[in-house]
Nucleic acid binder design. Sequence first.
DNA 1: CTGTGTCTTTCATTTCACGCAACACCCCGC
DNA 2: GCGGGGTGTTGCGTGAAATGAAAGACACAG
Lengths: 283, 283
Amino acid sequence: MVNDHRELRLFLHLAQTLNFGRTSLDCHVSPATLTRTVQRLEAGLGHQLFDRGPRGVSLTAEGHRFRAYAIEALGLWRTYREEHPDPAELTGRLAVFATVTACQALLPDLLAPFRAAHPQVRLDLRTGDAAAALARLDEGEVDAAVAGIPARLPGPLVSRTVAVTELVFVTARDRADAGLDGPFVLPHRGLVREAADRWFRGRGVTPDVAAEPDGHEGLLTLVALGCGTGVVPRLVLDNSAVRDRLTVLPATPPPEPFPIGLCVRRTDLRRPLMSALWSLTGP
Amino acid sequence: MVNDHRELRLFLHLAQTLNFGRTSLDCHVSPATLTRTVQRLEAGLGHQLFDRGPRGVSLTAEGHRFRAYAIEALGLWRTYREEHPDPAELTGRLAVFATVTACQALLPDLLAPFRAAHPQVRLDLRTGDAAAALARLDEGEVDAAVAGIPARLPGPLVSRTVAVTELVFVTARDRADAGLDGPFVLPHRGLVREAADRWFRGRGVTPDVAAEPDGHEGLLTLVALGCGTGVVPRLVLDNSAVRDRLTVLPATPPPEPFPIGLCVRRTDLRRPLMSALWSLTGP
DNA sequence: CTGTGTCTTTCATTTCACGCAACACCCCGC
DNA sequence: GCGGGGTGTTGCGTGAAATGAAAGACACAG
């Protein structure tokens, strides 16, 4: 039932973009799947739908006719569904994991459209260490996570960047003259630590690490106490309760920007609720 | 694509018969599949479509509305397909196996509607021993077989009875007074032999077997030569070249009727051509 | 309480769709 | 000519989904 309409949707999107890669990205399917979906359609119909030229893709005559059919069929379906919606699609429960900072700084704006569209959905918000986000997601404890996303995700997860913040060096206001030599307070592990390590390595120095706390918030507390210079995403600094006692140290080159993403299990994108979350938090 | 329409077709058929068993038989799916297809539909829509009472099944209000949608959607699809038929569905090649007798007596009438509907399809007709029919089918040498069908088919095959003939005892006209005691000419193996054996066992006698030829036609020749009393489907007798020299001996109780079926591989029923053959040879 | 006609569930099997990765192809700039 | 980025496609292993056979639940009749 629904499956068939997914094929039609893919076809229609492709008929508009005339670009396999683009449709593949927009519709969250691998290029292979898209190719074979179209091949299945063409085989089932017994007609070529697209001309694949080296200059790109174009609709064949049959493709145009089938497009008309697909639009009509999908419209019929949409009409039916509007009049007889699935009551289950508008309710349910969604568990979202976010770091404390993401909670404060990003979630309100990020989730507002979804919240407005589906007010009956109960949102469970879990917070914790950024490093735990993906594990919680993978284990099925939560349905979505907002956190720094590593370049290589575990297989079954997909993510989309929802914000980019820079990494900044920060120290206690009364130690601002210490510069970038003094002892450092670095996260024990995680993406920020890796970025910091890369930055030091790029300058050919080995930092003097004075402390390695677990979370960004705790890190800032140590920095405010004068334990050393810290590295955090600016977003964390801006939302810190101790930001008045801290100051940013300019660094050249500046550390790499730090992307924060919304991450979900790929298979969940088929669930209507998750699909809605994904598209309503998108661009 | 096509899959979805199969679901709609099943639903519409069931909405008309209001009987799972009947629809299951007519549409060549197991009851389990039908049940779950409907369950899938209902789950996908989020609405009950049928009320299952002990007294039978009835459409719910949602069921009626969905039925209207299904009819419309299927009509849209049929219209599209009529205007843009799959050229591959009308051509191709079909290998049919049949016993000599089935060829002569049944195939013309059986295949006429199919032939009329798909004149471009090339029909390859293979003949041979009835016992070989299922083997040829299973090995993929032929696409369909017309022959006596055992009660238990090999897993991947399905059959439908297309004719029923009685088994008759037959002897040479000039030995008609020999009765049912004389020596017998029985097929060496196969369904007729099994039925004959059961008949003898039911009467508690052990037949005096004078010959065990391989095919029914050869058997009749031996009988005509006076070698003994034979057992054959009446259909074979009626189409025999030597029938003028033979006579039927009444037997009580008469041997069990002998069903002749059209048999195909189950998976082939999805191929449009085979599906057409199946439905056009049906009731 | 067995038999009969329903529809559903359990289970093992097969089939199918998917993503990943490798591939083929083309065009472009040097 | 020859890498390099950008197309779309194919080989392959895996995991989910659909299937049929058979057993099960349930109501009802004799």
